[in-house]
């Protein structure tokens, strides 16, 4: 279980202003909200990547910021973190990137053959062909493949908690849907506790057990997807309407670009 207790964090301006939240074991929680409202900051406090100015995060009753030596290490071993832009190490190939976490903590216990087997399976679990991608450097992969390798790196250590920071940002709709499907499959297969920070409200509603709206540094709404859809709270409605309008604008922009291209092709025989 993950508990956020009255989290405050300010950089130049306040970002989180008293967020309290409990995520039971096995739950998938999505956190949505406008940009700059501290969603990623909240996610990073979960494994101590950012230390809050006030408040505490407890994982299975143990404070992430406890002074007990080794506690942060133990908590980080329990969690897998999927970064917004995958955050793969440029100078390491895919094998080294995915194996890095377990090489540190479990290689002695498991042996190199088992480490290699786990890396192989993790890549298969994210629908990548291990034979093809293992020796490649991150620069040789597409954006979607990098996200999948980042996901494989997060699950290879068989974590109890998975933290996703904008897992579909920057992906085209096909790849975004594929990553959403992967998250769903991994959650169903492993029953891990998941927190997904995202802008993709439709994807979030289809994936999560509960959804939270973070705005102005505070949690303005928390409930099931059905409650979110039904909610008549002004902030929830305003956010959902803004997201829907942005999605419609994006689709119509894409449609008009496509029809412009078709017209150009018809008139000149060349793409513009």
């Amino acid at each position: 279980m993950i508990e956020y207790r009255d989290i405050y964090k300010a950089f130049d301006a306040p970002v989180l202003a008293g967020v309290s939240l409990t995520v039971p074991d096995g739950e998938t929680l999505a956190i949505v909200g406008p940009s700059g409202t501290g969603k990623s900051v909240l996610l990073k406090t979960t494994i101590g990547l950012i230390v809050p100015d006030r408040g505490d995060v407890l994982i299975d009753g143990e404070s992430v910021f406890s002074s007990r030596p080794g506690v942060l290490q133990e908590i980080r071993q329990k969690a897998g973190y999927v970064f917004q832009n995958a955050a793969l190490f440029d100078s390491f190939n895919v094998y080294e990137n995915v194996a890095l976490g377990i090489q540190e903590h479990e290689a002695k216990r498991l042996g190199q053959r088992e480490v290699a087997r786990r890396v192989w399976h993790a890549l298969e679990d994210v629908n990548l062909d291990p034979r093809a991608v293992l020796p490649k450097l991150p620069s040789e992969l597409s954006g979607g493949m990098r996200k999948r390798v980042g996901l494989a790196r997060a699950i290879v250590g068989r974590p109890q908690i998975l933290l996703y920071d904008e897992p579909v940002t920057g992906l085209d709709p096909v790849n975004a849907a594929a990553v959403d499907r992967l998250i769903e499959e991994i959650t169903e297969k492993t029953h891990v506790t998941s927190i997904i920070v995202t802008h993709d409200i439709e994807g979030a509603l289809s994936l999560c057990d509960r959804i939270g709206l973070l705005e102005g540094g505070k949690l303005r709404f928390i409930g099931t997807p059905a409650e979110f859809r039904r909610s008549d709270e002004p902030l929830v409605r305003a956010f959902a309407d803004r997201q829907a309008a942005a999605l419609t604008a994006m689709r119509s922009e894409r449609g008009s670009r496509r029809s412009r291209r078709t017209t150009d092709l018809e008139s000149t025989g060349r793409p513009s």
Binding site: K44, I47, G48, L49, Q73, R76, Q77, A79, Y81, F83, Q84, N85, A87, L88, F89, D90, L100, G101, E104, H105, R153
Partner: peptide
Amino acid sequence: VSEQIDAIYSLGR
């Protein structure tokens, strides 16, 4: 800036 340092920490390294 590309969160690779955070990734190192998150992997317990």
